[in-house]
Amino acid sequence: MSIGHTLLGLLESGPRHGYDLKRAFDEKFGHDRPLHYGQVYSTMSRLLKNGLVEVDGIESGGGPERKRYAITDAGITDVEQWLATPEKPEPYLQSTLYTKIVLALLTHRDAADILDTQRAEHLRSMRILTDRKRRGDLADQLICDHALFHLEADLRWLELAAARLDKLKAAVHT
């Protein structure tokens, strides 16, 4: 998962301090893996260097986590692009997608569209695998089947998530 894009997405609703960003990240996405301050600091300095955020103010007497960051227009475009680009289909990508959907809902973007884009990308991969399976030998068939069943499971998850978007939206905004 892209920590940089996630932190950027969290900044879209308004400027935040480093420690506030970490807390928001841990609360929403860091269930089993909270961020270290070092990760926040290195990520934010990279985003600063790339002009995706700017420093909006510094609390007195503080270290890097005391800086207040604001997203720039270039940062918003960057989040926009990341959300709109489907993930390369591979098993277990749900946590990235989950993050994208939550961020889309938080920033009032079309989360259903993100799910549909991913759905189309998955089916595209499944077509290629099905075609390869058709031409291949038994080993090809088994390898492709393994991938196909995993992609199918992802796709079911995408459909379930699409059906539950309204509920998730309500939960995300509380």
């Binding site: 549909d116 759905r119 499944m126 077509r127 695998l129 099905t130 199918e152 079911r156 699409a162």
Partner: peptide, 20 residues
């Protein structure tokens, strides 16, 4: 079923009577 749909050239999705 997605694995069946993967034999197609392209797909449309129907939800609540609307197609995409």
């Amino acid at each position: 079923e997605a694995r069946v749909a993967a034999y197609s050239d392209r797909e449309i999705v129907v939800r609540d009577g609307k197609s995409r």
